[in-house]
Design a protein around this nucleic acid. Structure first.
Lengths: 256, 256
DNA sequence: AATTGTGAAGATCTTCACAGCC
DNA sequence: GGCTGTGAAGATCTTCACAATT
């Protein structure tokens, strides 16, 4: 199969663990909020509470960026904001295109959190002629036929895919062919991309399913046979057709 | 501080690792897709490819549910769909309320992925009188004053918070007080909830920031001094005011 | 012959607990 | 005295590789 190794990150890799990277934006938000309240200095314990993590974890995370705190005192808020922003690459602007202007695409186009953090939406694209031409949040929706031109001309470096599931892989192939190496995918499909392209996925339905799992557990595990024997959870029914009632409908709806 | 331990899951805990739970919905989607194509049996390798994971991981994940495969053959698709669905609690219906009917709330209300997987949206609530009364996806938006009644009367067990950041914690407190113990939060804040309440968070801006980090790395690390000395990355500037240019604007916009 | 299920090794992530510094 | 930065221990997650089973 294709190469995999060296996943943690390219070369050079000053080695910030992925788990840490995923939390830096949370710290950043908490810091901004402190800044707004005029707080100049913060301890790891305070910031950890604001960010919803353990303070040892916070300190270790920050230690990967450098030694930016002062023992006995804490961290200077403004300075830390700057360092984290720089590490995340937010001191420069990133040009984003949103592909698929349905309900979700519109919501994304109007989302204030983009602009405020150095993400500039430079294109809204859709395949539907009804939608093309419409103005949304100050941008005119363009036809997806112009995808390659738009990406090239405007220097788009992040593509947000908010199309129906069926269209997502095709769109993804096109943006990747146009040189985009970062994709945020809202369509409920697993996108396959070449080595070197980063895909992050946001899936509303998956989040709900995870909640349902825990909710069910609170109520007392999967209804039927739970702990019959103390031994290994051997099959209570052989892998023939499902036991008891038919497994409900389970239609794969087109979703989104 | 408050108790923490025993986080992995309540008591009884037939012990499905959290990482596995998070992947089960992905497998389920891949299986549905196979089902649609009329596939009756699948090997771990095939399913793994469809789900975008390593096949050993897939087998280990499934082994936590039981022994539902047949050596030398593979897994029966329909049976596996049933077992995963049951484990995730999708053989019953979950009643969902969406609070905050802005762009995002509308997108969520119209999202097909909910209904098709046993999630029934039974309420759309908003504080804005302009919006209350509007009909969206077959539901009439109700006033948030009725939150407690609606949750109680309709048996809502999962609350989706899609309000502006400032309103989220207040709404969260109210849904929790009404007995909801599962919350899906789209507002860009850390919600604090009592022990026993599950919160999952979806944050668009955070995903983009993570992408930006990797994108920047591909281009060659944070612009300035990168690897100066071979020693520890000691502070290149003391924790005084930020070095060089002012750290841009960094306004904490109201977002959403 | 093919494929599952799983011990064991390895990698990554979290937490503890305390030395080191202000 | 207070708080950071971090080695070391512990927990969790991933991957390998192969015995078990059909």
């Amino acid at each position: 199969m294709t190469s995999r190794q060296t996943r943690t990150r390219d070369r050079s890799d000053r080695g910030i663990p992925e788990a840490t990277v995923a939390r830096l934006p949370v710290y950043l938000r908490a810091l901004h909020s402190l800044q707004d309240r005029g707080v100049a200095t913060v301890s790891s314990e305070e910031l950890a509470v604001a960010a919803g993590v353990n303070s040892a974890k916070l300190r270790k995370d920050l230690s990967h960026l450098g030694s930016y705190g002062t023992r006995g005192v804490g961290y200077e808020v403004e300075y830390l904001v700057y360092q984290i922003s720089r590490e995340l690459g937010l001191t420069q602007d990133w040009v984003v295109a949103i592909i698929g202007v349905g309900n979700l695409g519109r919501a994304l186009a109007g989302y204030g959190g983009f602009a405020s953090r150095g993400f500039r939406v430079a294109g809204l694209l859709d395949a539907d002629d009804e939608i093309v031409g419409e103005e949304i949040s100050g941008l005119t929706v363009e036809h997806i036929d112009r995808l390659e031109d738009i990406i090239g001309e405007r220097g788009v470096s992040i593509a947000v895919i908010a199309t129906p599931a069926g269209a997502a892989q095709g769109v993804c192939d096109r943006v990747v062919a146009s040189g985009v190496t970062s994709v945020l995918n809202f369509a409920p499909v697993v996108l396959s991309v070449p080595e070197g392209v980063d895909v992050r996925k946001v899936d509303l339905s998956i989040e709900l399913q995870i909640l349902a799992f825990h909710e069910q557990r609170k109520a007392g595990g999967p209804d039927e046979f739970d702990a019959l024997d103390g031994a290994a959870p051997k099959a209570a029914a052989p892998p023939g057709p499902p036991p008891g009632a038919t497994p409900t409908q389970y239609v794969e709806a087109v979703e989104a």
